[in-house]
Structure formats: structure tokens, C-alpha cells
Design a protein around this nucleic acid. Structure first.
Lengths: 171, 171
DNA sequence: GTCTATAATTTGATAGAC
DNA sequence: GTCTATCAAATTATAGAC
């Protein structure tokens, strides 16, 4: 995976989080990079291949971030998830990449759909393990749902205060 | 607003909840109804006009449903919201129309964006009023976020059990 | 209210030269 | 790895006849 491919993935991720899967074309990416759309196809044969790779990388990075920012205790884990999502929201009003893509499930390729499911499963499994106890799974689902919905509300209101209010009771 | 316009709105809503704002074209709607796309433009001049009307009607119907299914008490209101969303999820795996559209904010017309914001505001204001007390607003944001995120998880997992787990602690 | 016809643009993807 | 050139299809929208 060379630098051009990395840049293409960066741009694709930004576009998706702004306007969804169909919020950009290969020509858009090519123009931003100063090349032609046929060259983009050299790095990623299809749009589905590109987006699946973007989702996988997003999940790897996200889980590494929350792991580095928290110990193994429950409150730390929830706070780490909350602040990781809040940072992107604060910086450019973006919600979770996978939250955005889930809305377009009906037109995504099977490989992209599977990568999205994998992201949520990895997060909820990680949270469940860290929370522990008999209600751990239900709490993990609750935390993840509230964070995703909180980002959605903040975006609709154009106000990060909506995220803060929605998630204040979590940790 | 005649019957053809109503049907066009029904079809548009179903398409959006399946694949987003760009998940259908005027030609798709026309073909389903056995007419031509130019005739769809007679009822709704632009796609933005159509979708704004669909969102407005969705909000009116949703608020009427939760009002009819609950008294003025707090637990009743939260349960009514929860079961109203759960019904559509159970029937055809669809999440909230406005939750879907929020993901595509970047390509929506201003009138559609404003209708979406209006939907969330109406819901949260209604919940806040019914919950009452000093923490009412924060609780209303929390409930709405958890329900929206719960629908998102259920869709990603293709399992309504995810919604149930995420929202079990609400009411 | 519906039609035919069409404009103007964009899209994902491919073939093959350099 | 990047290019030119191109394809086949789809999109939103409009003009004007019936």
C-alpha cells in the first residue's frame, strides 16, 4: 500500500463522512490529487474495493486509539470511546464513518456491508470484555448506540452540545 | 395533495429508508407507478421538494403515533417512542427516515436539512416536556440518541436483538 | 395529468499506449 | 503508474404537445 493509495483512502473517507458513499466519484479523488480517474482504478479496481479498505483501516485506527487512551477499567473504556468520537465531531462536524455508511446499506457491495458489521462487532466485543459482569453485553450495545445516535443528533443540530447532552450519563 | 402524490411520497420514503437520498430516481418512482418521469415532476418540481414533503409527513405521522399510544407520563412516552421505532424495524428492517438522511447531509438541499432538524427538535421537545424536571432535556437527548443508534446497530447486525439490548435500560 | 423528446451532466469502469 | 479516449448507463430537469 503506497502513499498514493493512502491519500486516496484519506480523501475517500473525508468525502464519505461528508456526504455518504455516493458523495464522491473516482473523478473527484483524481482531480484532488492531480491525476486522472483511470489512475485511481489502478490502485483500487472498483469503488467497493476502495471503500472496504477505508472501512477496515478506520476500524483498525479507531480500536488502536481507544486502546491507547484507556486502561482496562470500565469507566476508562467508555470515556475513551466517547472522547474518540467527540474529537472528530468537534474538529469538522463528522460523525462515525460506519454510522454514515449504515444508512446506505441498500446500495453497498457485500464486502463493504461485511466490513461495517465487523467494525461494530469489534467495538462491542471490546467494550463487553472491558465492562464485564452479567449485564456487560447489554451495556456495551447501549453505549455504542448512544454514542452513534449522539453524533447523529449533533450533526442534525449542527451543535456538539447535543452529543454532550445525549452522552453525559454514560460514564 | 392528491392520491398520485401520496403514492409517490410512499415510494420515495421506502426507497430512502432502504438506500438513502440517492437510492432512487424520479424514473424509478415513475416506473413503479406506470407513468413517466416527466409526470412525477408535475407533482413535485424537484427531488428536494419531494423529499422535504416526505420528511414533513413522516414527522407529523410519527408524533401523532407516539401521542396516541401514550398518556402524559414519562415512562409511557419513552415506551411509545421505543415501540414506534421498533415496529418499522421489525417489519422490514428499516431505521428512522431522518436517521438515514442525516448521514447524507452534505448533498441535501437546505430545505431538506431544515426539515430533518425540525423532526429531531419536535421529538426532543416533546420528550423533554413529558419527562419534566431539571434533567429532562438531557434525558430526552439521551433517549433519542439511544433509539436512533439502536436502529443503526440492528441494521448493521441484521438483528433486531441489537436494538432490544441497546434500549432495554431506557424505560 | 400525462406524454414524447431531449438537454446537459455525471457515473463506474475498461482498453491499450507510454 | 499514469495517460488518452471512450463506453454504456443513469441522473435531474425542461419544453411543449395532447
Amino acid at each position: 500500500m503506497n502513499e498514493t493509495a493512502q491519500r486516496l483512502m484519506d480523501m475517500a473517507e473525508a468525502h464519505i463522512r461528508h456526504a455518504g458513499y455516493r458523495g464522491f466519484s473516482f473523478r473527484d479523488l483524481a482531480a484532488e490529487l492531480g491525476i486522472r480517474s483511470a489512475s485511481v482504478h489502478h490502485h483500487f479496481p472498483t469503488k467497493g474495493t476502495l471503500v472496504a479498505a477505508v472501512v477496515r483501516r478506520y476500524g483498525d485506527r479507531f480500536l488502536a486509539t481507544v486502546a491507547s487512551r484507556s486502561s482496562e477499567t470500565e469507566d476508562d473504556a467508555i470515556s475513551a470511546y466517547r472522547s474518540a468520537f467527540r474529537t472528530a465531531l468537534e474538529r469538522d462536524g463528522r460523525m462515525c464513518l460506519c454510522g454514515v455508511l449504515t444508512a446506505e446499506t441498500g446500495v453497498l457491495t457485500p464486502e463493504v456491508v461485511e466490513e461495517i458489521r465487523s467494525f461494530f462487532r469489534r467495538c462491542i466485543d471490546d467494550l463487553t470484555r472491558r465492562i464485564g459482569g452479567s449485564e456487560a453485553a447489554a451495556r456495551a450495545y447501549h453505549v455504542m448506540a448512544t454514542l452513534e445516535g449522539g453524533m447523529m443528533l449533533a450533526r442534525a443540530y449542527r451543535d456538539i452540545g447535543a452529543f454532550d447532552q445525549a452522552t453525559a450519563s454514560l460514564a
